[in-house]
Design a protein around this nucleic acid. Structure first.
Lengths: 198, 198
DNA sequence: ACTTTCAGCTTACAAATGTACGCCCAATCT
DNA sequence: AGATTGGGCGTACATTTGTAAGCTGAAAGT
């Protein structure tokens, strides 16, 4: 095995260990370097061969999380081809994401308002992408004026994100109700912005 | 000075010390018992004379923060008497609150998605109050069906909360833009729910 | 007047953490 | 083949943490 391969392998081990340890009761801030190293199966000091400190690791996690989110969006758009309602499909896809990758979503959710400015802006950037692409869609579909489309998209993303946060701790049944509720809220927003622009 | 008075006084010193240390870079979770005790001017072990552990202190802080929020709402309603727009007044009052008590707002914002289930539900309860009272207002004012009013209120509160989070780090100018944007979003919601119920 | 209560203190300790330093050895380079 | 590089390790240390145990003195109770 080449040296670069091995290095990349332990780097992934560290990243995976960190994602693994994140949970409802454990935020990234409460993760210690030693803990991560232990889970990754390396000595504490070996950590520094890959990241300067925990912050650097954290930013990597946020980037990867954002990437997953964007992949989710593309997945949702693909589904749209054979389906009617944008809003319903998007919300349902999002809900599937937070079930499958709840730790990733929790990371984004928490660091969005966390103590590190770098983390906050990293998450903000990822969400920004999310909003921009949705706004693009709204412009084409509903012919909103450009700035209004972005404002509408932002509101929608906020509502979906919050719904996801609620759904994290909920049972399947409750999650279903949250989904329905969120769809309703998004439709109001869509209808309201249409109505107002006339 | 009576003994009970003195006890209450140091209890407040602890609470104030905790609020004092909260900031953009310092979450409650990153606060240590010793740190709080130091700031409050007592020995670390004396802390236990007032709270069983840091969690108990934290829940007290959340309760006090929620109380402040409800007081804010009453204040907003009082203003309404001499004013026309509910939405504008509410958003502006909220913005004033997060400027005056940014540490309190940050606490609620963070613990809403924090690592302690007890904290999360405590914050959720406070926000619930917020939503319920707004829903009440919407029912009377706009004659929405009861459940729809609550759903609308929840969406509005989420949007205002998020706007507050954004405004925390922003300049006066940017905060003004956020305010305008949020008002627009809330009006869309109001219009959309009216439109849909017809 | 005396006893009891109890907020606050000092001392003490075990556990965990970040990280500096230096060794080792296999992959890589010359 | 020999020299170099660099990922991984063990040891070590200073800090910080939560909290247990026991003392003190003044307020409150009798």
């Amino acid at each position: 095995m080449t040296r670069a391969e091995q290095k990349e392998r332990t780097r992934r081990a560290i990243i995976n260990a960190a994602f693994e340890q994140l949970s409802a009761d454990k935020s990234f801030a409460s993760l210690s370097l030693r803990e991560v190293a232990r889970e990754a199966g390396i000595a504490p000091t070996s950590f520094y061969r890959h990241f300067a400190d925990m912050d650097e690791l954290g930013l990597t996690l946020v980037d990867e999380g954002g990437l997953m989110l964007r992949q989710l969006m593309r997945q949702a758009r693909q589904r749209l081809i054979n389906n009617t309602s944008v809003i319903r499909t998007s919300v349902e896809t999002f809900m599937e994401f937070i079930i499958r990758h709840s730790n990733v979503f929790r990371l984004l959710l928490r660091e969005r308002s966390g103590t590190s400015a770098a983390f906050r802006s990293a998450v903000a950037r990822e969400i920004q992408h999310f909003c921009a692409e949705l706004a693009d869609y709204l412009r084409k579909e509903n012919k909103c004026p450009p700035e209004l489309a972005l404002i509408q998209a932002e509101a929608m993303v906020i509502l979906v994100f919050h719904a996801g946060a609620d759904a994290l701790d909920a049972s399947d049944e409750v999650r279903q109700k949250i989904t329905v509720k969120t769809i309703l809220q998004l439709r109001w927003l869509a209808a309201g912005s249409q109505h107002a622009s006339i």
